[in-house]
Simulated scan of single mutants.
Amino acid sequence: MIVRIMGEGQWKLADSHFGELNGLDDELLAEMENGDTDGFRRTLGALLDAVRRLGEPLPDDVLEPSELILPAPDASLEEVRKMLTDDGLIPG
């Protein structure tokens, strides 16, 4: 699966990593619902770090269709809220 982090680039991730990403996504959603700005910031960073750590970055000159788009690290709570679906940022 190809994942884009807005403003940074794309990473190719194996489907086997989505359990870890979904756990962080669930945590992020709960923090947003509770208005926990500090927790939101921390968990968003952890989610993006996990994509960078677990994925293989695609070269800058390669543009693949992204199956998942995540917010930039400095995205606000409101910006991320607009990106949410019923499942959070990550479907499933």
Results as ranks from 00 to 15, higher is better:
M1E: 04
I2E: 09
R4E: 14
G7F: 11
E8K: 15
Q10V: 02
W11I: 12
K12I: 11
K12Y: 07
L13Q: 06
L13E: 06
A14D: 15
A14Y: 12
A14S: 15
D15G: 12
S16Y: 03
S16Q: 13
F18D: 02
F18P: 01
E20C: 02
L24M: 06
L28T: 00
L28S: 01
L28Y: 01
L29A: 13
L29H: 11
A30P: 00
A30D: 01
E31I: 00
M32Y: 06
M32T: 03
E33P: 10
E33M: 11
N34G: 13
N34E: 15
D36I: 00
T37G: 04
T37S: 11
G39C: 07
R41G: 10
G45A: 13
L47G: 08
L48Y: 07
A50I: 01
V51K: 01
R52D: 09
R53G: 07
L54Q: 12
E56V: 14
P57M: 11
P57I: 11
D60T: 14
D60N: 05
D61M: 10
D61P: 05
D61F: 13
V62F: 07
V62T: 06
L63R: 15
E64C: 08
E64S: 10
E64L: 15
E67C: 03
L68D: 05
L70Y: 08
L70R: 12
L70K: 08
P71E: 02
D74L: 12
A75G: 10
A75P: 06
A75H: 04
S76R: 08
L77F: 09
E79P: 12
V80P: 02
V80S: 11
R81S: 13
K82D: 14
K82R: 15
L84C: 02
T85K: 05
D86G: 15
D86S: 13
G88T: 01
P91Q: 13
P91H: 14
G92M: 05
